[in-house]
Amino acid sequence: MNMPFFRTLAVCAGLSLTTACVTSTVDEMTFNEPTEGIGDSSVVILGRRHSSDYETEPDFVACVGDHITSHDESIRIIDELEFLNALYPWFEPRTAPLYPKNIEQLLQQKPVAEKMLALKLEYLIWLDGSTVRTEGAGSMACSLNGCFGFGTWGHDANYEAAIWDFTDQAEVGQVNTSASGQSYMPAVIIPIPIIAPVQGAACDGIGDQLLEFLSSEY
């Protein structure tokens, strides 16, 4: 009577405890860090979306923002979509400034300059990159009696963050992160996914470095 219960419990425990390994590297180069923190100024993190074959995932951008604010609540991060809507159409993929020197041209638009002042924007961080699925192998067959087999696949994440100082209209830092990992799914009646949190590791890596730059507490 208790056997099915314990079997289910064991499967659930296994699912919650098993995650595959991820290797990640982070390179960082920053200048003019705000040693006292950013005060009541704000930061916006935007994804680059002008490449034809990939685009920086909005949930990755949100993850990096959440990582920073969860460690230092004093840092005000403007939501990406809220910023894009408020500044429409100046930060769309077609019109977004590609270099810090383009900020001056943008601020010649009086309503844009006023909006930036109201937002107290100090740093604009561009995230560029994506997570892609790499090789996969194995096979699995499922029937009414359950699934049997084994599958494996990999993920590679590569992201670059460029930090622009909005006041000085200059790039003040770059952070690169790359992560890769292999996920597995063995199946004996029930498939058990053992997922490598590749994008999460990249998010933590880039988030930690940005936190170190922006926060006075780290």
Partner: peptide, 9 residues
């Protein structure tokens, strides 16, 4: 979708 007004004069 959400189509905001443009921020221009």
């Amino acid at each position: 979708g959400n189509f905001p007004p443009p921020l221009i004069e």
